[in-house]
Amino acid sequence: MHRRHLLALPLAAGISAPAIRTAAAQSATVMRLSHQYPPSHHIAGVLANFAAEVKARSNGAVDVQVFPAEQLARVAENFPGVARGAFEAAVATNFTWGNTIPEMSAQTVPFFFTGLEQNRRFPKSEARRFLDGITARRAVRSVAWLFTTNSAIFTSGRKALVNPEDFRGVKIRGINTLIDQSLTAVGAAPAATPAPEVVGALQSGILDAGLTDVSAAVSRRFYEVQKYGTVSPFFSVSTQVYVNPRWWDGLRPDARSVIEAALEKAEVEAVDVTVRTAEAAVGELREKGMTITVQTPEQVAQWRDVMQKPVMDAFLRQAPENGPRLLELLRAV
């Protein structure tokens, strides 16, 4: 026994500090999170801060590895990837759920749920819990909602899109079949285009006009390919963070608590960052040479009169069971 202890001493003494740190890192709980935003996007920054917060709160015991700009998976691959456990987490803007969860598009009914305070209250609301319950039926677990925008921008190269008649015949970025109803109502020709592909489509002439949030117009450099922009409280967009439920349920309680606390902090941060970034983005787009029109209340009313009803009707057709209740809950937020 004495000899065995002596033989073990050099082995123990030979373990270096880096090796110990490596072993500790290997034993950390890993959360790989895929998203589509470029690193310069404000929500990408919120997610990066979330990862740093988890590391600090857990003393490195939980390692959130964030993969921006579709580095881990393309947007369409995120949901199946998380559902089958290929990676632990991803994000989705509410409208990208499309027909999979049609209720998610309620917030994107034009000019319906665009108030800042409504969006600030949403993560604590019954409407959020209602949507989380619907998400749970789709083999993933919703764990956070990050307010992303209530300030859209319609960009164009030939003339500003200010009045409803300006859209006639314009090939514009579509988002989903529901939102596209509003664009069709004013005579535009929407074409569904993932966010990372819009600038290329505008540059090549596949699209005449773009539709994105005003901050993304800066981070994705729309000003390099478009001359005009109309800023509108068109709809609200939130970024939902979701996880693999088997992985989530298998976490140690302390690890889950750390992640939940950091996500709650991120939900608050997202509101302030979104407002600040949107305000700065309008000025930056002007500095980059774009001619920017910020809609007046009269122009908002004019667009709403034409665009809202066909989308509201289409939403209720797509979500006949849960749609009316969700609209009621959103109005109460």
Rank of each mutant, 00 (worst) to 15 (best):
M1W: 10
L11N: 04
I15L: 14
S16K: 01
M31A: 12
R32F: 08
L33N: 04
A48T: 09
K55W: 08
A61F: 00
D63M: 09
A69W: 08
R74Y: 15
E77Y: 12
E77N: 14
V82Q: 09
R84M: 06
F87E: 04
F95A: 04
P110V: 00
L116H: 12
P123H: 03
T135R: 11
R141F: 12
S142T: 10
A144Q: 05
F147L: 03
N150A: 10
R158T: 13
K159E: 12
N163F: 05
E165F: 04
G174C: 02
G174W: 06
G174F: 04
S182T: 03
L183C: 03
T184F: 01
A188G: 07
A188K: 05
A188W: 02
A195E: 08
P196M: 09
L202I: 00
G210D: 05
T212F: 09
D213S: 02
V214Q: 00
R220A: 13
S236T: 02
W248Y: 13
W248E: 05
E260M: 13
A262W: 05
A266L: 07
A266T: 03
V273Y: 02
T274Y: 09
V275S: 06
R276P: 01
E279T: 07
E279F: 10
G283Y: 05
R286N: 01
P297K: 04
V300Q: 13
M307N: 11
Q308D: 10
M312F: 14
D313S: 05
A314L: 00
A314T: 07
N322D: 13
L326E: 11
L327H: 13
E328I: 01
